[in-house]
């Protein structure tokens, strides 16, 4: 016998199921009056530094059908590359920018959208700067454990080429699955980027175990 490691095991994941919106975005699911607003429904609470952008997309299954019961969460740095987090020690992030967004995919079209700012660069574990990117987490019925991916920008070609995470992807022909495409300006004049997520198929998105 040996001593115990005194280690607890992480609680195992279970699917969020088809009704994740009841718990996470109840107002969007038609359950009003419990929470004043849905968590993560706005990232911007006042004047913010940097370029305001819109991120849109959908999550597609292996048949090419958009998921209508998915929920997408994003987490990102502000325009200066700082996180609005308790353990951010490099400086003070923009106080009008939370960096956290949550969206229910549309129950008819499957589309999600976020109004956010283009993130600045953040160093990786070895000190090299990463290209601007947004962390995404996707849950839905039929997804047993949340899927973790990253969205990069198609107008950052040189930063993307130097990105330490993108460089470590064995099949470099899959890197384009992580790069959002500029769609021009929205009706409000913001730059819009489209990031479609494919769970399977020839364009299956790269997912991370981080």
């Amino acid at each position: 016998m040996v001593q115990s490691l005194n280690a607890w095991r992480e609680s195992p994941s279970q699917t969020a199921g088809p009704y994740v919106h009841i718990g996470c975005t109840p107002n969007a699911a038609g359950i009003e009056g419990i929470y004043a607003e849905d968590l993560g429904s706005s990232l911007i609470s006042g004047p913010v530094a940097g370029k305001q952008i819109e991120v849109v997309g959908a999550v597609y299954d292996g048949t090419g059908t958009p998921l209508k019961d998915a929920m997408v969460e994003i987490w990102q740095a502000d325009a200066a590359g700082l996180f609005n987090a308790a353990n951010e020690s490099r400086g003070k992030a923009d106080e009008n920018f939370t960096g956290f967004g949550r969206a229910a995919c549309d129950q008819e079209t499957g589309e999600f959208s976020f109004q956010t700012v283009k993130p600045g660069q953040v160093p990786w574990v070895d000190g090299r700067l990463q290209a601007p990117h947004i962390t995404m987490w996707i849950v839905a019925r039929g997804i047993n454990i949340g899927l973790h991916t990253r969205m990069y920008f198609d107008d950052e070609a040189s930063a993307n080429a130097d990105d330490p995470v993108l460089q470590r992807i064995e099949h470099q022909n899959r890197v384009p699955t992580l790069i959002a495409s500029s769609e021009g300006a929205s009706s409000e004049g913001q730059a819009t980027y489209r990031f479609n997520i494919h769970l399977q198929g020839p364009n299956e998105t790269v997912f991370f175990d981080m």
């Binding site: 470590r168 064995e170 769970l199 175990d209």
Partner: peptide, 30 residues
């Protein structure tokens, strides 16, 4: 997991890319 049918067309087929956590994973909203 085949008995849970919704996973058939919603499960990624490629291996996950394993990397150490960095600032973006080690921080979170308050």
């Amino acid at each position: 997991h085949a008995p849970y049918k919704s996973t058939l067309k919603r499960s990624p087929q490629a291996a996950l890319i394993s990397l150490p956590t960095s600032l973006g994973e080690e921080t979170g909203p308050v």
